[in-house]
């Protein structure tokens, strides 16, 4: 039962990032930072971890001269996120 929980989502911030990316086409770094109320470094390290799992993809572009980094959930990422939600639901049902 417990192994169904994704290791990548053990961290609350990583699960929160996935929730945001699952609900939106894409999201940029600064909006994510404001929404989750985390520091630059903290967010960057969690994003890196999710990127390593190939759960999210990064799109780098420029708006004028400012770099604009947008994050997108991959199909794998969405699948993993859904599996995680299912396990949470299962856990609730089992204990009822």
């Amino acid at each position: 039962m417990l192994e169904q929980f994704d290791k990548a989502f053990e961290s609350r911030i990583r699960l929160q990032i996935m929730s945001v990316l699952a609900a939106n086409e894409s999201y940029d770094f600064s909006s994510l930072k404001e929404l989750l109320e985390v520091t630059d470094g903290n967010l960057a390290s969690h994003l890196k971890a999710l990127e390593k799992e190939a759960y999210i993809a990064v799109n780098k572009s420029f708006v004028g001269r400012k770099p604009n980094t947008r994050y997108v959930a991959t199909e794998d990422g969405i699948e993993a996120f859904k599996r995680h939600l299912k396990s949470l639901e299962k856990l609730i049902k089992q204990q009822k």
Binding site: L15, S19, N24
Partner: peptide, 22 residues
Amino acid sequence: MKENEALAELSSIRSLMERSAK
């Protein structure tokens, strides 16, 4: 993880999905 923890987690995910998109 306890049942109410899982419930709290699910509702915080839902609220975040809504807050981020709407």
